[in-house]
């Protein structure tokens, strides 16, 4: 039988709490603090473990199923690609610098989400990317005293 969503959620919670609980051994005690740094996390993790078990048990026992909502076609491929593009952007930020990385990210993600079919759309994509990336950098550096990252490779 396929495990249901709540069982998966409960198992994840249980696994997380057991794993972290194991890590609390080996935390050093302090001469000044009556309770160690392991005291509070252990309480929280124990509660989490119990709740996870309750969730699994409740799900197994009550076979009561809600009517599933009307099926919606879900585009998980696009979600995964968006996460990927965002990940690449974040990795590229320190190397390329804010302006270049943001320019490429804005252009890339706009094209990914909605491939432009006309020249006007391409122009919009380019305009949004250029104005936003250079504009944000300039506004932050000159007016808001926040230095957004410069590229380690490019110095820009």
């Amino acid at each position: 039988m396929r495990p249901t969503r709540d069982t998966v959620a409960g198992l994840l919670g249980l696994g997380l709490s057991i794993w972290l609980f194991a890590l609390t051994w080996g935390l050093p005690k302090s001469p000044f603090v009556p309770i160690g740094p392991d005291f509070y996390p252990r309480i929280v993790l124990a509660v989490t473990a119990i709740l996870s078990l309750a969730l699994i048990a409740g799900d197994r026992l009550a076979r009561r199923r809600r009517q599933p909502a009307a099926p919606v076609a879900r585009n998980y491929r696009l979600v995964a690609l968006t996460f990927l593009v965002f990940g690449v952007y974040v990795l590229a930020l320190p190397a390329l610098g804010f302006r270049l990385a943001t320019l490429l990210f804005l252009a890339g993600l706009q094209v990914l989400l909605e491939p432009p079919r006309s020249r006007g759309r391409w122009l919009t994509v380019a305009a949004v990317a250029i104005v936003a990336s250079f504009g944000i950098f300039a506004v932050f550096e000159h007016y808001l005293s926040v230095l957004l990252p410069r590229g380690a490779w490019t110095g820009f």
Binding site: V90, L93, Q110, I136, L148
Partner: peptide, 15 residues
């Protein structure tokens, strides 16, 4: 359009 809104929101979150 969301295809513009979503990338912009993500950049602002990073900033």
């Amino acid at each position: 359009p969301k295809s513009i809104l979503i990338p912009m929101v993500l950049v602002l979150c990073v900033v």
